[in-house]
């Protein structure tokens, strides 16, 4: 039985159409991807230090002080030559001092820095490069001359800034 020509044509198309369809072996699309690393600087603290109350004074001492080193800071940056500066909200009472020391494993700590009147930022850590410095100790020291009478509990806001 040989089919008539129209039937044979239909059969041929039906047989070869899948082959034509699946013969597509490649397909491409193009996307442009833009990447950029912006300057990143972040610093955070673990919380506030404990209260610095002077409650005793050794005999003969001219200055008495108390310290707290329980708070921590962490920083990260992808920039070079960064530093941490500290400033205080308003000056300390006459006859008293507030000092701060920031430990640093990747930078250079300036040691104990007097920020009693540091309305303008003062450097506490310098030479920070790319990378992070995690869980570093912050030590606050409050000192008062023994000639200073009682001072009611007071507070100051200390701002630590990671900057270039």
């Amino acid at each position: 039985m040989i089919a008539n020509p129209p039937t044979r044509l239909i059969v041929c198309v039906a047989l070869f159409l899948p082959i034509v369809v699946f013969a597509q072996t490649g397909s491409s699309v193009v996307q442009n991807l833009t990447v950029e690393v912006r300057p990143i600087t972040k610093i955070a603290v673990s919380g506030n230090p404990g209260a610095l109350f002077i409650t005793d004074a050794p005999y003969g001492a001219d200055v008495v002080s108390v310290s707290d080193n329980r708070s921590r800071y962490s920083m990260v940056t992808n920039m070079d030559n960064m530093k941490i500066v500290a400033s205080i909200s308003h000056e300390m009472p006459v006859g008293t001092k507030l000092m701060v020391k920031l430990e640093s494993s990747s930078g250079l700590s300036n040691g104990v820095v007097d920020i009693s009147s540091a309305r303008a930022p003062v450097e506490v850590v310098t030479g920070l490069g790319r990378g992070s410095d995690l869980n570093q100790a912050i030590t606050y020291t409050f000192a008062a001359n023994t000639s200073v009478g009682s001072i009611s509990a007071d507070s100051r806001v200390v701002t630590l800034t990671l900057t270039n």
Binding site: P39, T41, K42, I43, A44, V45, G47, N48, P49, A51, L52, F53, I54, T55, S71, Y73, M75, M79, T96, L98, I138, Y140, F142, A144, V148, G149, S150, I151, S152, A153, D154, S155, R156, V157, V158, T159, L160, T161, L162, T163, N164
Partner: peptide, 14 residues
């Protein structure tokens, strides 16, 4: 290019 964190320091003499 800069980032800040604040702490409140409480003090007194008694």
């Amino acid at each position: 290019t800069s980032s800040s964190a604040t702490q409140t320091v409480t003090f007194g003499v008694r």
